[in-house]
Each structure stands twice: as structure tokens, then as C-alpha cells.
């Protein structure tokens, strides 16, 4: 089954009557199964709104969304979500937090021990499985949160600025882990970010979103071979994509 995400003329308006705010859309877009698509735009452009609507956690005012040809009418459970502020609970260890995802879904964690260990190894967190979130740095917390969001092997991953609060060096390192995990598991990814470089490095396509109301201004195809490591950023092709994206935002007075 193909886990293609299809958005058709999706709109979101908050409030009603005279005080209504037209926040987003209309937007139409297709994300192919296994694709890594970034939603790139400045703060307040509605990219998180779009992500929540795709997850079925927020109802669109107009238009429709389908995942694998099934209309999204309520919360989707075959997804992994991540936010800027992670969803690790302070009363559980890293392992406990990963198990929480399974327990919430009625899966006995003991049956998935190997998978948890493999995920922890993939993000170099195997030595921190029994640590509590408050004992970890922000970057390590986000690594743990990645494991939490992936342990149930979701076909779709919705990542809302998961690296937003991290310093540049940590971002760099987690980015490559994220890319490796994506290439390994191949979920369909919608990645919300406001970093142009990050979007170009990770994505097969970048949806450039301009604000008030949020609109997909352009969808850029990034034709660079994976895996894209640190060196790819020194290539002229990479710079060209970055420049092209910057030009779009400059045209809209965003930067």
C-alpha cells in the first residue's frame, strides 16, 4: 500500500465572523510514499498548522487530506510525531519513554526490546537508555524523542521543527542520524523547519511557504544524491539550491 499524502485545496481559518483569521491555504500538494518533504517558511506561516491537519489533530476549514487514499477525518495513529518541545515524560527513563509509545498503543514493550536497542544504537544513545530526560542535554533528549517517534514503525512521520531549539553543531550531528534512519526505514516524512540549509540538505523536495495567509509558493525538487553528508554543503549545486530558496523569500520581503 502506498502511503502517499494528498492535500487538496486545504484551508484553515481560526475563529469566526469578523474576528476570523484566515491562517492557511488554499494549498494543494502531494507527498509521495517514502519521500522526505520539508515545509520551509518563517515563523507564523502556518506550517505547523498544516502538519497538525495532516496528523488529523486539527480539522481543516475547507478542502480534504488523504493518507494512502483514506480521508483523514480524525487523529491518525500510523504516524510518528515530534515537536520542538519533545514529548518525553519526566517520570520515565529514555527506555521507558520509548516504551510509553508502545504501551499507549497496547503493545507489550517486552516484545520489542531488540528494536528499542537497535534504535538507541542508531542514534548513539545505547549508553543512556536508563537515564532520565533531565539528565540529558537538549540534543540527547531529541535523539531519545526520535526513538520514541519511530519505535512503532510509522509509515508517516510528521516532524515539527524537532531541531529548532538545538545549537548549530548538535543540529548538524542529529541531522545525519535522522537522514540515516529515514533511508533505512523509508517512512514518508513531512519536516517543518525554518532553516533553508537544513531543508535543502535533508529533503527530496522543499515546499516553500510564504505567510499571511500561508501559501505554498514553490515546490523545489532537490536533485542531490543521498546520503548527503557534511561535504555536500560545499558543492556549487547545494549553494545554488540555497540561493534559489533565499531569492523566493527575498521576493516576498521575508528576508
Amino acid at each position: 500500500m502506498s502511503h502517499r499524502i494528498e492535500l487538496s485545496t486545504v484551508e484553515k481559518t481560526f475563529g469566526a465572523g469578523a474576528s476570523a483569521v484566515h491562517a492557511f491555504g488554499p494549498v494543494s500538494m502531494t507527498v509521495e510514499a517514502g519521500e522526505f518533504v520539508s515545509l520551509l517558511g518563517p515563523s507564523g506561516c502556518g506550517k505547523s498548522t498544516l502538519m497538525l491537519m495532516t496528523a488529523g489533530l486539527l480539522e481543516p476549514s475547507k478542502g480534504s487530506i488523504t493518507i494512502a487514499d483514506i480521508p483523514v477525518t480524525g487523529p491518525q495513529t500510523d504516524i510518528g510525531i515530534m515537536f520542538q518541545d519533545n514529548t518525553l515524560v519526566p517520570w520515565r527513563s529514555v527506555r521507558g519513554n520509548i516504551e510509553l509509545q508502545l504501551e499507549m498503543r497496547g503493545i507489550v514493550p517486552a516484545t520489542e526490546t531488540e528494536k528499542i536497542d537497535a534504535l538507541l544504537r542508531a542514534v548513539q544513545m545505547e549508553d543512556f537508555a536508563d537515564r532520565f530526560p533531565y539528565e540529558l542535554s537538549g540534543g540527547m533528549q531529541q535523539r531519545a524523542a526520535f526513538c520514541q517517534a519511530m519505535i512503532h514503525s510509522p509509515q508517516t512521520m510528521l516532524l515539527d521543527e524537532p531541531l529548532g531549539k538545538l545549537d548549530a553543531m548538535t543540529r548538524e550531528s542529529i541531522r545525519s542520524d535522522l537522514q540515516r534512519l529515514w533511508m533505512q526505514e523509508r517512512p514518508t516524512v513531512m519536516f517543518v523547519t525554518h532553516s533553508i540549509e537544513e531543508a535543502v540538505q535533508l529533503s527530496s523536495r522543499v515546499a516553500v511557504i510564504t505567510p499571511r495567509p500561508g501559501q505554498i509558493e514553490r515546490v523545489l525538487e532537490i536533485n542531490l544524491p543521498y546520503p548527503r553528508d557534511f561535504d555536500v554543503k560545499n558543492t556549487p549545486e547545494f549553494s545554488a539550491y540555497v540561493r534559489e530558496t533565499q531569492e523566493i523569500f527575498r521576493g516576498y520581503g521575508v528576508i
Binding site: 497538525l52 496528523a55 489533530l57 487523529p75 491518525q76 495513529t77 504516524i79 510525531i81 515537536f83 518541545d85 519533545n86 514529548t87 515524560v89 517520570w91 510509553l100 509509545q101 504501551e103 499507549m104 498503543r105 497496547g106
Partner: peptide
């Protein structure tokens, strides 16, 4: 928190399980 509320809903867990595993300890 907003994030945990969304997380709970995305797991499809029922009200009782959500309460025991997340709302009560939080």
C-alpha cells in the same frame, strides 16, 4: 502540555489509558 496532549491523541489510546499513563503522573 499541548505537545503531550497531541502525542496522546496520535497514539489512539483511550481516555483511561491516557489518564493512567500520562495525565495522572503529569
Amino acid at each position: 502540555s499541548e505537545e503531550l496532549t497531541l502525542f496522546c491523541r496520535s497514539t489512539g489510546a483511550g481516555a483511561w489509558r491516557t489518564f493512567l499513563k500520562i495525565r495522572l503522573p503529569a
